[in-house]
């Protein structure tokens, strides 16, 4: 019989591992999230940090660059042009978003009801405008809105009527709302529709056994089930409204006097930076606007997600 050499490992004294070894950090996790963190820091955190840094200075044509602390923020809070633009997009928000989401919901429910012929065709055609870039969509609508050579002009000519000018000061916001609705109904519809598709069929069967009608099924089963999707779509729409930029920017070429350079908060910050070289003040306005958007989106999320609210 040969004596078995005890395994090397057995040499180690029993008991807990030495603390130093045990606390050694494992960097493997960082390896996985590292690429994300690097990109996130570079394209998200760094610009924000740089904006905050910028917003604390003021660079003048005469006098150069100097540190001004929070002066830009005080100025922004007292700036009527900023608040007017914020009020304008808020008005847009409370009118356009319910209309758009309402239409999207109706279409989603109609598609989900299974009573439509050519369902796939409807779904894809209603979604299609979302695939059109906002710039192209706005240009296209701009042509239609034209009272001289556009569609509106042609209708006026053909029927001898005078339709109100969609690009006049009073109507241009509604016209922008129309474009945005056209663009995003399909997108929101798809969110709602996919949420509707995952509702278990057994619920419908139970409702049928209980003798519930279609309307009751919608209010008692479908709507509560897609609540999460509704909240998400609302938050996206709020953010989208506050960031309104492409549509007014492009329509402005056709309606320079109706759409001012401070028409929406985003357009205002753009004008400040690129027409006025006021990047510092522009950064302050952008940060305030970002905070306002965050707060409102957060409130909506809190309220929307609360059970039974």
């Amino acid at each position: 019989m040969t004596t078995l050499e005890p395994p090397v490992a057995a040499d180690r004294p029993p008991g807990p591992r030495p603390p130093a070894k045990r606390n050694r950090r494992s960097w493997k996790g960082w390896g996985f999230i590292g690429p994300f963190v690097a990109v996130f820091a570079l394209v998200f955190l760094a610009p924000i940090a740089y904006s905050i840094y910028l917003s604390l200075f003021r660079d003048q044509l005469i006098g150069g660059n100097q540190f001004v602390g929070l002066d830009n923020y005080t100025q922004a809070i007292e700036d009527d042009r900023f608040w007017d633009s914020l009020i304008r997009v808020s008005l847009f928000l409370v009118v356009q978003v319910p209309i758009m989401l309402g239409i999207a919901l109706l279409i989603a429910l109609a598609l989900d009801s299974g009573r439509l012929y050519g369902k796939d065709f409807f779904r894809i055609t209603i979604f299609l405008p979302y695939a059109v870039p906002a710039v192209v969509a706005t240009l296209m609508w701009g042509f239609m809105y034209g009272t001289r050579y556009g569609l509106v002009g042609d209708i006026n000519e053909a029927f001898g009527v005078t339709l109100p000018d969609p690009l006049s000061t009073d109507l241009v916001l509604a016209s922008i709302g129309n474009i945005v609705t056209w663009e995003f109904v399909g997108y929101n519809m798809l969110i709602f529709y996919s949420a509707l598709r995952v509702i278990p069929h057994s619920l419908y069967e139970a409702a049928e056994i209980d003798g519930a009608g279609q309307f009751r099924v919608i209010t008692a089963i479908k709507l509560p089930a897609i609540r999460g999707a509704l909240v998400i779509a609302t938050i996206f729409s709020i953010i989208g409204s506050f960031q309104l930029f492409n549509e007014p920017n492009i329509l402005r070429q056709l309606a320079r006097n109706a759409i001012t350079t401070d028409y929406t908060p985003n357009f205002y910050t753009y004008s400040l930076s690129f027409n006025g070289q006021q990047q510092n003040y522009s950064a302050a306005v952008a940060i305030i606007m970002g905070l306002i958007t965050m707060v409102i989106a957060y409130i909506v999320q809190l309220r929307g997600m609360r059970k039974g609210a």
Binding site: L61, T169, N257, N275, G276
Partner: peptide, 21 residues
Amino acid sequence: LPFQQYANSIFNDTVGKAYVS
């Protein structure tokens, strides 16, 4: 103006109102 470029950019915000109101 030494900042005519900016001034021109806000012309329609200001004088432009005379054309539509």
